[in-house]
Design a protein around this nucleic acid. Structure first.
Lengths: 230, 230, 230, 230
DNA sequence: AATGAATGAGAATTCATTCAT
DNA sequence: AATGAATGAATTCTCATTCAT
């Protein structure tokens, strides 16, 4: 995992905070505050954080599910309801609807980067298979979050700009994979990584139920065949 | 043009409205529509019709342009303004924003069907080229009206249901083209027409500026290569 | 009246409008459209506008009354309710709550400028009396719209910037009045016009009920005495 | 300091709470508050008290500064942040945002009363100078806390009612000062103390940057001249 | 006592649609 | 038929206040 799961809110709410000794009179142990004594359980002081983190995850999951079901257009309230929290809580964690989308996307990009890295490092042999396997994986991710990745493609949105860096990381990483597959002779050389990503993502977007009948080849296979050799 | 571009309003509530005359059988009157039979005294009522029709077209064009520029999200008022009419007029012609979208799409599907028919009939020789040429044409149409065709893909929308019949016609027509191309040995047999359509449309959706660099192959070419032979 | 009562909305909604002949087929009389034949009643075509204007006034009045009663803090909905229109209508006329405030203030400034001009021109003799009479009038206006003029004083607000020009006009105009009063020897010379305005407006702000008991001098009189001579 | 600055919470619901001991009668214990009697074993509970008191002060100061900077409109959280405590803590000390404002104002009124008393008692000679000097001092205080004193002036607010008693004390105290100045012949007799207060406070409210240019007289001077003699 | 996460009642604003003229 | 003013439900976001730890 590269992009530390960017706890959005924390950067947001804690600017000039915690200037004073927390008033709670922590027993002055000898080590600097914030650095845990190794092995110390110290569960209590982090309790709140843990719960909040659970909520954050709940919201994230609820949002992902809701967006997948009904599109990004759903009112924020509905997401909150689905997460079982109040709107206020949602907004405490994600100060903007857009930032919520961003968080979801970033998480997925992050996961993809991780997977891609593993693919690059793990399978030095069979680079072609690794390439296509990864693309298939990416397709699944994108299909599940169609609307979100759609929004990423729209030019007007802030989203695109926001995720640019991370998306760039992903492309860099995929590019390595692609290059090796090309070098191994299993993938045509005249297709760029952005094109590959575009093709895969585009294919997902239309994955209408019924468009890919169980028997027969899948749309993605056609694209893959096209990538293999013209 | 097949789908009689009749005044929408009148048959709006019909479930399988418009273009229900499934294929062919236009009442071939002798004179072109819109040209008055000389000597007819009923100028006033006709003029209304003519003016109204002109407005309808204007709205349609303005809507298409506006949607292309700013997405289907644009307020109806803006479309009306672009068309140079009041909102009321727009709503007289298209009782719903969705119905306006529908009309645009239907027009394009209609055009595509026409083109496709011509391709089928006109070029009995070179069926493979005809197939790909048509797909390329379709891609252009879809790219220009991305948002609209996107909406067509969304599952929740009314739009999809509304355009189902006409879309089915298009698929039927394309299927003929595809079948001939398959028979001629230039296209793989294990890909269905919905899949073909899906691939082409998906590819358009992502046509981000920059994704297809001038030199090198285009995304669509990859898909075509994939379709040619596995 | 100087600042034409800035029909805010019109600049707002009519940018690329009215490109086409209004479709309504106005009987082609000989003179250019928009120029009224002298003496022609021609009430009909302007009807809508008249009603809308009435609404605009109603909103303005309701807003003024409501703001005066409960402060600018009142929700826009309440103003709309008081005006007997829907929120949408209010927003059609004033695209922002702030713009509504602006309109009210501008109207008052406008009235003040008018009055001030009259004072300047009308009473060349007795310039001192004219000066103080005007200030008293201004105090009444400001007292009635305390919150609004308060907001005008706040530095952060957009309002201030928005009304700057008009406020400048007012100050210019008052300055003439003041100068003459100074020249006539009835007002001290070391007080600037902004200070005068500040003093008067400040005095209004606190006009708490009871602060100025019926018998005895009024707060404003004290200020006036201070202005007369040090 | 008169109004015992006791822990607010405890007597919050009392109607005429705090400082109800109308004037005087402080339980003169021998040692300064906050300094522990040596040898007292009850360190822990005291320490709490001391810490809490420190927090209370910190909050008060932070609130004053924050309100001065950004108006009473600032969210409570921001005040808490500025004070270096959690919102919860703030609310433990001041159960309502309004009560926080109240506390600040009361403190200032208290200080003003103290100063005023000193002026009354200390400077039996030169009562006129004492009067104006105090007013100038009051103006400074009010300018620094404009928003708060503004709120005090608003009729709708609870604040006004809440601070009525203390404000009355201030007026009583000022009235003595004023009376002496009147008796000494340096201040006109037909102006009531509420009017004086109103004039001073009003003048502060508008102290826009730039309204009082460095050279020339200040707005307050005009008011003073007006008070001196009509 | 202190903390800060959670809550939810508003508030401003937008926009599809209706309606009087 | 055309016009554009009116409508109000829906949406995003804020912030005072409560509560579990």
């Amino acid at each position: 995992m590269r992009n530390g799961d960017s706890a959005y809110i924390e950067d947001y709410t804690e600017p000039s905070f915690r200037l004073s000794t927390p008033r709670g009179a922590r027993p002055m142990t000898g080590h600097a505050p914030g650095i845990e004594a190794p092995g110390a359980p110290e569960t209590a002081p982090r309790r709140r954080r843990v719960d909040a983190e659970r909520n954050r995850q709940r919201i994230l999951e609820a949002a992902e599910a809701t967006f997948a079901r009904a599109g990004i257009g759903v009112p924020v309230d509905e997401v909150a309801r689905a997460a079982g929290v109040g709107v206020g809580t949602l907004y405490r964690h994600f100060p903007t609807k857009e930032s919520l989308c961003e968080a979801i996307i970033l998480r997925h990009i992050d996961l993809l980067v991780t997977t891609c890295d593993e693919a690059v490092e793990g399978t030095a042999h069979a680079p072609v298979d690794a390439f296509f396997a990864f693309l298939r994986h990416m397709a699944d991710e994108m299909t599940a979050n169609r609307d979100l990745f759609d929004a990423l493609g729209e030019s007007g949105t802030e989203l695109k700009a926001r995720c640019q860096v991370e998306f760039g990381q992903l492309e860099t990483c995929i590019d390595t994979l692609r290059q090796r597959a090309v070098d191994a002779g299993g993938v045509r050389a005249d297709v760029t990584t952005p094109q590959v990503v575009g093709l895969v993502s585009g294919t997902c977007k239309l994955a209408q139920p019924g468009a890919d009948p169980p028997g027969g080849c899948r749309m993605l296979d056609v694209v893959f065949d096209g990538l293999r050799r013209g």
